[in-house]
Design a protein around this nucleic acid. Structure first.
Lengths: 232, 232
DNA sequence: TCAAAAGTGTTGTTGATACACCCATGA
DNA sequence: TCATGGGTGTATCAACAACACTTTTGA
């Protein structure tokens, strides 16, 4: 054995897990996707989606794999949140868990996956007790989401590709937990010039109908290069 | 063996390491504490301070232990940055590394530790090539430091307990990499009312002398409770 | 014709920026 | 007395917050 391998070998090894805090937005509410755990300990208790790291994958690969397995979705916005490593966080053994938070467009999450994994969307304000330190993770994820949403165009990750201004305003109101002034909100959002106004209207929410918009990543890139950036 | 233990046992285990990005501030320059690695692979190359996680300690315990061992300092500002888990990030084996960044008052770092561990302070703008992904970690650490410094009173962690306004201004200039207007800087900092002005002056930098100040954690707490917070 | 949501500008206030001179002291 | 760094106030400008009415359309 190489001396270096030998040096490493004297140190203990640990199970490494990942937990995904999956946010969604539906009918004016910010939601979290959770499920009932299928193995001991805590079998049948509410839990975040998680899984163990495999030997042949990186952390981000693993997070994407877990998300794909459990939702069928790929190319999802995801960011590492924090790594949890208290000794007794898992009563069944020492596990280091890396928490990720993800934003998925709730309308793309299919009910078949929901059934298969016993998953449900729960309102963030009616969150049940989750296992272990998962409630801490969610709290931290929500704080991060709030900060990010104010300074980066991540809100669009939670909406369909085409959305209305009333829709995105209600999204931001749900994220920040406060109501926003309609005129000021529109003024600011439109003044950044990162949206494309479509000719179509969404007629499902009102008789008058609301114009549909699309987020333009190129325009946003130009903003970034100009040093202005996104802010709401 | 319990069924749950058995379930966990089928998953692979990993070496978990920690790396500390240690910032300091000295003579108007933002510095990083690095050393020459003492074991293979990369023995003799510039590296962050790091170490392996032990079986009986949490991640934060480990980070504090490493910092204490290598600097002699305790009660240091430290925050988790990110966890690095690429498969081949370490050529000698699979290691998951949790990066922390720490702010230490450079004047409290004793030269004896420096000798013992071959450590040196290097200017952040003259950073040598570091091993593995350590340069990425530093870059991310610096970005985080900049964001935090603008919104939380962490600058004081890098200064002696008693400091002058010119000193703290030059610290912020070093962190942000830009020069700040003296009058506006003082106005803003003092208007938050989190400093105590002392009767003494520091006479080492000028003939006139500059008043010494101290950061008041209680006053800051009141700011937080009032919802105002710190901003520079 | 009415109910319900979408859309639209202006004004006052506040915070940010730009800017130049006097002060205190030791050499 | 002079060189060096420390200390101080004001005017302008930009961004933010507050605020109310008209439009469209299906029922």
């Amino acid at each position: 054995m190489d001396p270096e391998i030998q040096y490493y070998a004297q140190h203990p090894r640990f199970h490494v897990a990942l937990d995904c805090i999956i946010f969604g937005f539906d009918r004016g509410e910010l939601k979290l996707l959770i499920h009932k755990r299928r193995f001991e300990p805590f079998m049948g208790h509410w839990s975040l989606f998680g899984g163990f790291l495999k030997a042949d994958e990186s952390l981000t690969d693993a997070a994407n794999r877990i998300l794909k397995e459990l939702t069928g979705l790929e190319h999802i916005y995801m960011e590492e949140l924090q790594t949890y490593g208290e000794i007794d966080r898992d009563p069944a053994g020492r596990v280091i868990s890396v928490a990720y938070y993800a934003l998925i467009p709730a309308h793309r999450y299919s009910a078949s996956y929901s059934q298969r994994y016993g998953a449900t969307w729960v309102n963030l304000h009616e969150l049940p007790g989750l296992i272990m330190d998962h409630n801490d993770m969610v709290e931290k994820g929500l704080r991060r989401l709030r900060r990010r949403a104010a300074s980066q165009p991540i809100g669009f990750e939670l909406l369909p590709r085409e959305f209305t201004l009333p829709q995105i305003q209600s999204l931001y109101e749900a994220i920040f937990g406060s109501s926003l002034d309609k005129r000021n909100f529109r003024k600011k959002l439109l003044s950044m010039d990162v949206l494309i106004k479509l000719e179509k209207k969404d007629m499902t929410q009102s008789r008058k109908g609301a114009y549909l918009y699309r987020f333009d990543r190129r325009k946003y890139q130009r903003l970034v290069e100009a040093g202005t950036g996104f802010a709401i």
